[in-house]
């Protein structure tokens, strides 16, 4: 790796980090607006034009709040919890191909931080470590509600990660690669994986909701039963990190869904326009972000439509519904490819 690539990667990393944070920040705003609109209300509209400064005001409020660490809490783990949640949420963005290649001078740069050949597994690893943020935080709080929330989070994640992994196996059968870069490149034009793996996409989407702890799967923090679940004892910016990590996770999982099933930065009929390669890259990136925002909207839409699952319903759906369905999907995909390869 030569020096210019290094500089480019550093700048690119900074931009991606910034974009992730800003998108997550304005997701909180969008969430409140979407919620309000669906309930025939206006939502935040006092801070700045259309309430656009509301996220800044919220952030400032979080910083200004008194920092409380309960006496009986395990201090180190108590601080470690939100740190892990936030770090892992941000780390996942590294393997996502945000765009095709960018040509500056005679250098060609890839708009992907790291093209790991096991990109999907890396995403899974990071999401799985993210559970530790919730578990450690909930356990270290030394509070029954927090602990219950943490236990729920852990069991929910394990149950839904299985079905998620199974749906990905079927996807890998069709793509033949674990690298996210290759998977996106294969979906050029309109060959989006969602058309080849509709059932897999459906399962993956539901599991993504469960993995990000979003309604209707927000049992770990369910306000009505657990007061706030794993973050009951948290205050100030540590609470802010937990809440913020949820939105970062939402952004990243939207990006992963768009990458895996909706062609990532591929836009249909872009080749016919006869644009330069850099223009194509930028339009592709914009299109990728439109896809991401569409999924973020879907996340919110679902949240403000459905009530929360009961715990046994959640487990039933995960183990008796999605897991067999995912295994069936693998079998069907495998059988199809076995017989087509015979010819």
């Amino acid at each position: 790796m030569d020096f210019s690539t290094l500089i480019f990667k550093a700048i690119f990393l900074f931009i991606i980090l910034l974009v992730t944070l800003v998108v997550a920040m304005y997701s909180t705003y969008a969430e409140r607006k979407v919620a309000a609109f669906m309930q025939d209300r206006n939502g935040p509209n006092r801070a700045g034009p259309f309430g656009l400064l509301q996220p800044l005001a919220d952030g400032l409020k979080m910083f200004m709040k008194e920092e409380i660490i309960p006496l009986t809490a395990n201090k180190y783990l108590f601080i470690l919890g939100p740190s892990i949640a936030m770090t892992t949420a941000l780390l996942t963005g590294v393997v996502i191909p945000w765009g095709d290649t960018l040509t500056i001078g005679d250098h060609v740069y890839s708009l992907q931080m790291a093209d790991l050949n096991i990109g999907i597994l890396y995403v899974f690893a990071m999401v799985s470590i993210g559970v530790y943020g919730i578990m450690i935080g909930g356990w270290a709080s030394n509070n029954k509600y927090a602990l219950l929330g943490a236990i729920r989070a852990a069991s929910q994640m394990i149950s839904y990660e299985l079905a998620m992994g199974m749906s990905i196996i079927a996807l890998v059968l069709t793509t033949g690669s674990l690298s996210l870069h290759d998977i996106v490149a294969q979906q050029h034009g309109m060959h989006w994986n969602v058309f080849y793996q509709p059932l897999g996409f459906f399962i993956f989407l539901i599991c993504a909701f469960a993995e990000t702890n979003r309604a209707p799967f927000d049992l770990p923090e369910c306000e009505t039963e657990l007061i706030g679940g794993y973050h009951t004892e948290y205050s100030s910016m540590k609470l802010g990190f937990y809440l913020f990590a949820e939105y970062v996770n939402m952004f990243i999982s939207s990006a992963v869904i768009a990458t895996l099933y909706f062609g990532g930065y591929n836009m249909p009929f872009i080749d016919q326009l006869g644009l330069s390669s850099n223009a194509v890259t930028f339009i592709g990136m914009a299109f990728f972000f439109i896809k991401i925002f569409a999924f973020i909207f879907l996340f919110m839409w679902i949240r403000w439509t459905l009530p929360r699952f009961r715990y046994d319903q959640l487990m039933n759906l995960g183990w008796k519904g999605l897991l067999p369905l995912a295994i069936f999907n693998i079998l069907a995909t495998g059988t199809y490819y076995f017989f087509t390869s015979l010819k």
């Binding site: 979407v34 609109f37 669906m38 309930q39 025939d40 209300r41 206006n42 839409w301 679902i302 403000w304 439509t305 459905l306």
Partner: peptide, 19 residues
């Protein structure tokens, strides 16, 4: 049922606000 619920919420999304 989920799709039905979502269709209800999206119609409210574009309705006139009561505020």
């Amino acid at each position: 049922a989920i799709l039905k619920g979502m269709s209800i919420t999206i119609t409210h999304f574009f309705k006139k606000k009561a505020t």
